[in-house]
Amino acid sequence: MDEYTRTEISVGFFVIAGVAAIAYLSLSIAGVQLFAGHGTTVTGRFASVGELKEGATVKIAGVPVGNVRSIKLERYAAEVELGIADTVAIPADTIASIRTEGLLGEAYVMLRPGGSERNLASGERLGQTESAVDIVDLIVKYALEKP
């Protein structure tokens, strides 16, 4: 033990713990984009995305499987790019719909896989989409159309 001074040893402990803390913060807490980079990318056209934002979660049966990469306007419809984990296969007749968590919660994309034998490859397009439901629209409709 005589080769090392107390200062060296205690600073060593401090630095190891410090680096570990910073690494934990940026790797685990900040969760370095689990599905970013690799994975399957599919697109879907929605008449309206409502409150959906980039980075929102994509779920199948309530389980997060990816996130929204980008939302762009194309020919007056929203072109949404979804990044989905490699481990999940997306059948060709999957339906994508935009839902909110609870009545006022965050918007997310729900995928309902179909029964098709063929799976979508990266870059392909989801055939069927359901737009975001606007609660206010529904209320207005209900109020005005009541006999």
């Binding site: 630095v15 410090g18 680096v19 803390a21 910073i22 913060l25």
Partner: peptide, 16 residues
Amino acid sequence: LLVVPMLTAFFNLAGI
């Protein structure tokens, strides 16, 4: 410069 960011990380983690 080396130590303060680490102390900040300790602060964050212990706070959470």
